[in-house]
Simulated scan of single mutants.
Amino acid sequence: MKSVLIAEDHPVVRAAVTLVLEKEGFKRIHEAASVGEALSILREHTVDLVILDLVMPGGNGLDVLERIKSNQWKCVVLVFTSLDPLFFQERCMRAGALAYVSKTNNLGQLHKAVQAVDAGYTYFAQLPAGSLDTVQQSERQMIDNLSNRKLTILQYLARGVKNKEIAELMHLSHKTVSTYKTRLIEKLRLNSAVHLRDFAIRNHLI
């Protein structure tokens, strides 16, 4: 019997994904609205497929991908997110995802992706070559060199989340988050924390 986990914090999206999965024959469907819930389900249940959003409370989908890989959980991951594949697809591939579908597409793409991974294939968007200008290419290289944890903290900071809240969400100390913040500003060659949001928006990170 096929088992699946939908890791997505929006109930309406979970309901739509559930309809797709039921049509594809999945009988046991688990749901998680946060990174913590997703990891608990993966620890407690055998799951064949994970439909994973990259933007969730308690971290992000990249954290879940890392834990799946480090724990060697035998499940296939299909990323279903609003984040631009141009900036996130390759990172997800490196982390072990076998498919990447943008929420801007209709659900037909999700159907095809589920069918592909269920049959043992991958499903990724064909990205346009030369679509980034020189500045964005340079910035994308800097982003690619960030660890998943640094990228998650950058996204939180860019959304205006305070250091203390980030520390609680990611189970880190306030001092550690402050250190990451300082290093991010240096690594991304920004003048101050004020420019983190502009950088994130320009590179489709939020």
Rank of each mutant, 00 (worst) to 15 (best):
D198F: 02
D9S: 10
G96N: 08
V79Q: 07
R28P: 00
F80R: 12
K112M: 15
T176E: 14
V64N: 10
V12Y: 13
A16H: 12
E37V: 02
E186W: 02
H10C: 08
V177T: 03
V135D: 15
L19C: 14
K150F: 00
A129K: 14
R149P: 00
A97N: 08
L146R: 02
S138I: 14
K181E: 04
V4C: 12
A167W: 00
S147T: 06
M93G: 08
H195M: 14
A113Q: 06
A97K: 11
R149Q: 12
E22C: 06
L196Q: 10
E168F: 02
F87I: 03
S82I: 15
R149G: 00
E44V: 00
L83T: 05
A116Y: 03
F124Q: 13
D63V: 04
P11N: 09
D63I: 07
S70R: 15
E66F: 04
S192Y: 06
V101F: 02
S173P: 00
S173V: 01
V50I: 02
V35Q: 11
V20S: 13
I68T: 04
L154T: 00
A33C: 09
R43W: 02
V117Y: 04
D9T: 07
G36H: 09
Q89F: 01
N163G: 05
P85F: 00
A125K: 11
S3K: 07
K74T: 11
E90D: 13
L42D: 08
E37R: 05
Y156C: 12
L169I: 01
R189Y: 01
I51T: 05
A95M: 12
L65N: 03
R202Q: 15
C75T: 14
L127P: 12
V4F: 01
G130P: 01
L19G: 15
P85V: 03
S34T: 11
K23N: 14
M142Y: 03
Q136G: 06
V4P: 08
T81Q: 07
L5D: 10
L98D: 11
V50D: 06
F80T: 06
L107H: 10
V76P: 02
V13W: 05
A32F: 02
R43M: 04
L19A: 15
F88Q: 10
